[in-house]
Design a binder for these strands. Structure first.
Lengths: 393, 393
DNA sequence: TTGAAAGCGCTACCAT
DNA sequence: ATGGTAGCGCTTTCAA
């Protein structure tokens, strides 16, 4: 029914092979032949059959992007960064443009695995996993197995905003102190490189890890430097690397300042959304009336906290200083007094795109740590006296 | 190299045809055979070759979603709605799950066309175009041609948040008063329905149009009802349906109230972003010192306007009332005093997903108008006196 | 209920 | 520089 390569070939008076060569531009073709073919393509309104060429060439133009929630600007911005590189607008027609298959996992391990299979089925050229990972060991193992399978199928795997699968012993996401890169391929009789079996057959994806720990630490250090001593923390959901690392950074700052007295943690766990920030802040205010600052797991949570403070008749940052994380565009608008750690989401996405294309090589250890930048919009030292008249509801 | 159907067939001691039937579950297979096959699939870690099956079956699991910018929550939320339906989380493994290919056009007509070709090449099962359209006639024609080609290739086309390609004569996007639906198919000898050639071979996509005009009108009517008489308008970029319809709604409200004196329009055009809102508001304040209200093309623009007002020492909404459009989550947080028209973006995306799947049938006319809801967060009548001491910079 | 086999449309290798 | 052609892995008649 549809126009095929053969139709074009017939019309141009050449062979199918020639048409293919013209279209893929990866082989010398005479100028006249070339233009004849292109004209036939035009006249027939021929559009390549992607599945057919994917089958024959054993590759596809699809790049999978796994996100928690595409409606969340955090992931939207990363996805935008990816697209800016895998399909640059200045590319001629569609030449060499990859398409992004965006998959919303909702943070569910099962969904993550399901989508990986679906993408493998599509023979995606690469898969990019974004955002923090669930730390459940069983899932980690299943995930590693899935990624290994995908890599073996010839697809690239990139982690963006997520720590490596097997953290170095020190438990530090920034570690480049991995084992020395041993030779792990050999030249087969037919001249091609084949992978040598490794003692541990783990996947080794390219990895762009956010410095969540460092950012969180810097934020809390900033609060401490202003004179705050009672700092609450609104953490994300347990079992997630993002939650853990940011919380660890916060605690590291407290420890370094000797602020971890036996009073226990001023930490409340919740989700990464506004409601959790709102509820969590109310709880913090209730439990710790002396609080002068709140560090939130991310900007969205911080916004919820601001709302709770406002409702309690407290001013931000005069009465309670609030910090967020990520620096989403709208957050600055909503809470101009927010101090936050800026994560270069778009840039990270863009680099992930390059890694997915294979244009950019991952560093020797495979892991690149993307730093955070402290954004101080408004800082206020705590009131000289102790507890405020906390009018929280 | 990879495991194929044939491998599974061999291992299960059945033919390839049988394995295919088991995997697709669209044909009766004996229970024992079935389980034998499934076990072989498990043991071999077999993953279907998508391109191969797409080639053979002439269909694919891909659904294209064209957006202006996936980093913009407006589109992110729509995309999320689409995904919620084309890949419901409760689907077993990957059974029948479609994948969303998200394409960022940046609002560029050329990119739009390029992506449509790319999606046609992938033999996408459907294509969803979101957001307002560029009104340039040449592009409209090229777009119509591209969509027609895609429809002829057997893919469904859905417009989401965009008016029909050929607006009814009245120029009203809400028109269901189109020509009576004539019979446009006939039953072929083999019992299948075939389309009759139409006089004008236009594409007829399913269409979910936002009631931009109605929403904008309601907003301005609201301002007028509060007593505002000098209302500025921050419009979007020219040549876009969204811009035009919202502006028309605004003007309709003014006309109805007899507020369009010869003083000329208090309208400033810009982009759909914060900076335009900021700059545009400053310009409005300068040119129309008596302004007591500003209606913005969307929430992002409104946020920029709020910033400009704040900077000018004016309070919102006490000194100047501001309205937005869309009701993006963060906007309410950033400007709680904002009155806005709520667009059910997620729901619209979800319906677009169903239309793309063919699960839901488009209405007879093809067009469904999605209404807006007025969200009044804080309204203030204009100050009794005339011009304020506009301290604008 | 199952098997055999003919494509689906393209790529890439081998000739020329 | 160009043509011929053997697959790529799956679906889907048609037979059995």
């Amino acid at each position: 029914m549809a126009v095929t390569l053969a139709d074009v070939a017939a019309r141009a008076g050449v062979s199918a092979a020639t048409v293919s060569r013209v279209l893929n531009g990866n082989y010398p073709v005479a100028g006249t032949t070339r233009s004849r073919v292109l004209r036939a393509v035009e006249e027939l309104e021929y559009v390549v059959n992607g599945p057919a060429s994917s089958l024959a060439a054993a590759t596809s133009d699809l790049i999978g992007v796994l996100v928690n929630d595409i409606a969340d600007p955090f992931f939207g911005i990363i996805a935008g960064g990816v697209q800016s590189r895998i399909a640059p607008v200045d590319a001629p027609d569609g030449r060499g443009r990859k398409l992004a298959v965006v998959c919303t996992t909702g943070g569910s391990p099962e969904q993550e695995l399901t989508y990986l299979t679906l993408l493998q089925r599509q023979r995606a050229a690469a898969v990019i996993l974004t955002g923090g990972a669930v730390e459940d060991p069983a899932h980690q193992a299943a995930l590693a197995a899935a990624l290994r399978r995908i890599e073996r199928a010839g697809a690239r795997v990139v982690l963006c905003g997520r720590p490596p699968l097997t953290p170095p012993v020190a438990g530090d996401e920034g570690g480049t102190e991995g084992e020395a890169p041993e030779a792990d391929t050999a030249v087969a009789p037919d001249g091609t490189e084949v992978p040598l079996p490794r003692a541990v057959d783990l996947p080794h994806p390219a990895c762009l890890a956010f410095d969540n720990r460092g950012g969180a630490r810097a934020l809390t250090e900033h609060l401490i430097s202003l004179g705050h001593r009672e700092i609450g923390y609104l953490a994300g959901p347990a079992e997630r690397t993002t939650t853990r690392h940011r919380l660890e950074g916060h605690r590291a700052a407290l420890d370094a300042a000797g602020l971890t007295d036996g009073a226990g943690d001023r930490v409340v766990h919740g989700r990464f959304d506004r409601d959790s920030g709102y509820g969590g802040a109310r709880e913090l205010l209730r439990r710790f009336p002396g609080l002068t600052a709140i560090a939130a797991a991310n900007d969205t949570v911080a916004l919820g906290a601001c709302a709770a403070l406002r409702e309690a008749g407290l001013r931000v940052p005069e009465d309670v200083s609030v910090t967020g994380f990520d620096d989403l565009p709208f957050a600055a608008e909503a809470a101009p007094a927010l101090t936050t750690a800026r994560l270069p989401l778009h840039e990270a996405g863009a680099r992930a795109g390059l890694l997915a294309l294979g244009v950019e090589e991952p560093p020797p250890g495979g892991v690149t740590v993307v730093g955070t930048e402290l954004r101080v919009r408004a800082s206020t030292a705590p009131p000289p006296s102790g507890p405020r008249p906390a009018r929280a509801g």
